[in-house]
Design a protein around this nucleic acid. Structure first.
Length: 842
RNA sequence: GGGCGAUUAGCUCAGUUGGUUAGAGCAUUUGCCUUACAAGCAAGAGGUCACAAGUUCGAGUCCUGUAUCGCCCACCA
């Protein structure tokens, strides 16, 4: 006998180990079954799992368990990401707390510390996955920095280099002066900041005239090597060819014309700093200007800035402004709010700087994706489809990807230098004197290979053959530019096929007020606190069903409680069923009663809907569909009715059949409790619900309406309504005009002692459904509120009848609207008229 | 400067191709310890679907515009 209350702790204990022991999570690449593969977005080993991860894996587990039960050979491949810059920052911080400096410690020992960190957090993450009950195939687990991935990464680098798709070049890149590394565009977060246009006086050499140069970054003037105006700008033509005097420095720099100078913007005069601005860099190239780097790697000013040497950017700006003012070179300050780039990881203001870095040439790779996305059967299908636009747009505008990072934790770049010579290869050159590049690759360079490198690529393995392309990828929309896009162009370039057929995108989880979860706000919620309080099943069900696909979610603990209540409801329904079917030997759905047929029909309808929603990844809709069936039909009606025929084989069979069906439909959402209850069924097809078959839509159990009890249900509702609205007590009397099909109604409504067969001469109330009619006799003094209620009812009926009559007299409506809709209106009208007549009679 | 999303009951959210009187959970009101469940049962109340105009017999749903909020993208000196 089950406990009276659902005990999630007890239910969830040991189940995961049982599944693992039975190898239920393992794929079977040698089976003839159709493959269904998802690779898990590898969480960073930086930390532990948060609510967002819980959401992400819950969705994937639902898909995997659903597909497995449907007979697919499922592979859900787990793994973790070494997260180069993020992990390195954590390890640096930890060492610092121990008084150790990264550089003094040395590369080798530092990497050891990183591996220690990785193993520690990897263990925690695996335990967390277990708590959530996710069906990951650990025998295939990978790490972005493991041997296989490293080989794949090297191969891509070498091949691309030989093909000209990877090159080393000196360009303006985003420099993180805290992490002291280059960043890609995607790693730069733009945020609005209060700033100003500073109008600087650049005097014309040998004249009293000057140019008004507006800039937001006066401290970069030391790197100016020209001043540009537009060639069509008549205001400044007379100065072109002359020199301007660089303020403070008093160095002459040429006044040039360039298309970059926009007459409409600012004063139309722009200072050119080729080593610290991407646009100016281009201008510099066009005009062969000198590139003067004026900052150190930590973004302090360097020796080229003279007395400002050693100042931070901010200090230097203050000092420069002060000095400019003193020398009457500051024309004005115009307040301005603009977007300033910050490092995604360290939060520091990014410095555009001229650096020699490695790049991936993006245009040909991106074009291939744009081409493929036009082909219906070859494209990545996004759910919701609008996210496809984000990827396509990115492919259109993307430019070369800076992949080198001045870090230690990661895939070291397979390039060696000897003087001016470069060697790129899988192994170090044999000869003496070659020195390997010190840098590592962007962490996303390896994760971009995740859908196939984890399956053995570049070797042609059985896994790769069977599970590539993956069937689905699940991730948040914030990861599309970093990861989804890059997997797509890499997969299509390297394997000639999309990496996954479907891409299910979910939103971000926020706190109750709609704010992002963040350390600084201190609003974080540990999902495992929730697991402890309500169980993993409750948390998963909540996460999977709360919002429509692709939208953000506001965290609400009350809803997890509601999920718990739902499971408790299922638990108790199971308690009733199991305690009454202990002696059931087999399910026999013959000699069915009307109510059996009714619930079976409802179940088939629910199943049909559920499958439709599951296949579209609309778990919220699938969830509601199952919920409604379980609670409102099975519990509220069928179980109540079953109590009166519980001895029948057909009743027991139907109870068992429906309960089994509910458990199966819910299993992907709440694996633990469904496994627990499934294990107690007297008749079942397999040891575990995980290896049972998902129900298939069966028209055999769709019965005709006249064989069902919908009409009785309608009568029951009508009776309860009249009884409650008139505050009737148990001593009401009722006379049935209809004699057929009323036994069940009498039982459910407990009317055995209230039946009479002759009218009484007291106040009466009509109760009826389409086919069943009865009169309640109940004497009660009518109060004002009763009268009001009745009047309201009459008025509502009258207005509804009026509306419908008008509608039905509209020829356009009757002719153009579908016949069944019109017919329905006619029926309703007739019913309403009848009801009104009954009410008015009294 | 482009693009996307949101706006529906007190709160959090659903509403598929336009079609019964717009739904759910929580909260709320009334009545119930009915032998699976009081974390429950039964019955209610609660919404001019942000605004305006349009198409249509019919609009929460489609078209146009507006407002507010949010997000993404973009080299605005």
């Amino acid at each position: 006998m089950l406990d009276k209350k659902y005990n999630h702790e007890q239910v969830e204990e040991n189940k995961y180990d049982f599944w693992l022991e039975k190898d239920y999570f393992k794929c079977d690449e040698n089976s003839g079954k159709k493959p269904y593969c998802i690779v898990l977005p590898p969480p960073n080993v930086t930390g532990v799992l948060h609510l967002g991860h819980a959401w992400d894996v819950a969705l994937q587990d639902i898909i995997i368990r659903y597909k497995k039960m449907q007979g697919f050979d499922t592979l859900w491949l787990p793994g973790m990401d070494h997260a180069a810059i993020a992990t390195e920052a954590k390890v640096v911080k930890r060492l610092k707390e121990e008084g150790i400096n990264k550089y003094e410690y040395g590369r080798e020992k530092f990497l050891e510390a990183c591996w220690d960190w990785t193993h520690e957090h990897g263990d925690i993450i695996r335990k967390q996955w277990a708590k959530l009950g996710v069906a990951l195939d650990y025998s295939k687990e990978r790490f972005t920095l493991d041997e296989g991935l490293s080989e794949a990464v090297k191969k891509v680098f070498v091949d691309y280099y030989n093909e000209g798709l990877i090159y080393r070049g000196e360009k303006i890149i985003n420099w993180d002066p805290v992490a002291k590394t280059a960043l890609s565009n995607e790693e730069v977060i733009y945020a609005e900041e209060k700033s100003a246009f500073y109008h600087l006086k650049y005097k014309i050499e040998g004249s009293d005239e000057y140019l008004d140069v507006a800039t937001t970054r006066p401290e970069t003037l030391f790197g100016d090597t020209a001043v540009a105006v537009n060639e069509n700008d008549e205001r400044y033509q007379k100065y072109v060819g002359k020199n301007a005097i660089l303020p403070l420095v008093n160095k002459p720099i040429p006044i040039i014309t360039d298309e970059h100078a926009d007459m409409e913007k600012g004063t139309g005069v722009v200072k050119i700093t080729p080593a610290h601005d991407p646009n100016d860099f281009e201008v510099g190239n066009r005009h062969n200007l000198e590139r003067v780097i004026i900052m150190n790697d930590d973004a302090t000013m360097n020796e080229l800035t003279g007395k400002y040497n050693g100042m931070t950017r901010e200090e230097c700006r203050e000092a420069v402004l002060k000095d400019l003012k003193e020398q009457d070179l500051l024309l004005g300050i115009e307040p301005l709010v603009h977007e300033v780039g910050h490092s995604e990881r360290t939060g520091v203001m990014v410095e555009p700087m001229l650096k020699k870095q490695w790049f991936v040439k993006m245009r040909p790779l991106a074009d291939k994706v744009l081409e493929t996305q036009k082909k219906k059967d070859e494209k990545v299908n996004f759910y919701p489809s609008r996210y496809e636009k984000i990827m396509n747009h990115w492919m259109e505008i993307t430019y070369d990807w800076c992949i080198s990072r001045q870090l230690w934790w990661g895939h070291r770049i397979p390039a060696w230098y000897k003087g001016d010579e470069i060697y790129v290869g899988m192994e170090a050159p044999k000869e003496e004197g070659w020195v390997q590049d010190n840098d590592v690759l962007d962490t996303w360079f390896s994760s971009a290979l995740w859908p196939f490198a984890t399956l053995g690529w570049p070797s042609s393995t059985k896994l790769l053959e069977k599970y590539y392309p993956n069937q689905c990828l699940v991730t948040g929309y914030d990861i599309i530019p970093f990861w989804v896009n890059r997997m797509t162009f890499q997969g299509e370039k390297l394997l000639g096929k999309r990496p996954f057929e479907d891409c299910l995108i979910h939103g971000l989880i926020r706190d109750k007020e709609g704010r992002k979860f963040s350390k600084s706000l201190g609003n974080g919620i540990d999902p495992f606190d929730m697991v402890k309080l309500y169980g993993a099943d409750s948390l998963r069900y909540y996460l999977a069903t709360d919002v429509a696909p692709g939208t953000d979610m506001r965290f609400d603990e009350e809803k997890i409680k509601a999920s718990w209540n739902y499971i408790n409801k299922i638990w108790n329904a199971a308690r009733f069923v199991l305690s009454n079917i202990e002696d059931l030997k087999e399910i026999s759905l013959t000699n069915l009663k009307k109510e059996d047929k009714w619930i079976l029909s409802k179940f088939e309808k629910t199943l049909h809907e559920t499958i439709k929603f599951m296949d579209k990844y609309e778990f919220n809709n699938a969830g509601s569909s199952i919920y409604e069936f379980t609670w409102n039909y099975f519990c509220d009606y069928y179980i109540e009715m079953a109590k009166y025929t519980i001895g029948d084989i057909s009743t027991k069979s139907t109870l068992c059949y429906i309960l089994t069906g509910i458990l199966k439909l819910l299993h992907p959402f709440m694996p633990f409790v469904t496994e627990e209850i499934y294990g107690m069924l007297p008749v079942k097809e397999s040891e575990s619900i995980m290896t049972s078959k998902y129900p298939e839509y069966n028209k055999e159990y769709i019965f005709k309406e006249e064989e069902l009890i919908d009409d009785s249900v309608e009568f029951i509702k009508s009776f309860r309504n009249v009884k409650a609205e008139n505050n009737m007590t148990k001593d009401l009397k009722i006379m049935f005009d209809t004699k057929d099909n009323i036994d069940l109604i009498i039982k459910v409504l407990r009317l055995e002692d209230n039946l009479i067969d002759k009218p009484l001469d007291i106040k009466s109330y009509k109760v009826f459904s389409k086919n069943i009619k009865a009169t309640i006799y109940y004497e009660k003094i009518e109060t004002d509120s009763d009268k009001e209620l009745k009047e309201n009812q009459i008025n509502m009926l009258k207005s509804s009848i009026e509306r419908r009559e008008k509608l039905l007299s509209n020829e356009n409506y009757v002719n153009k609207a579908p016949a069944n809709i019109v017919e329905l209106d006619r029926q309703k009208l007739a019913e309403e008229k009848q009801k009104l007549a009954e009410l008015l009679k009294k």
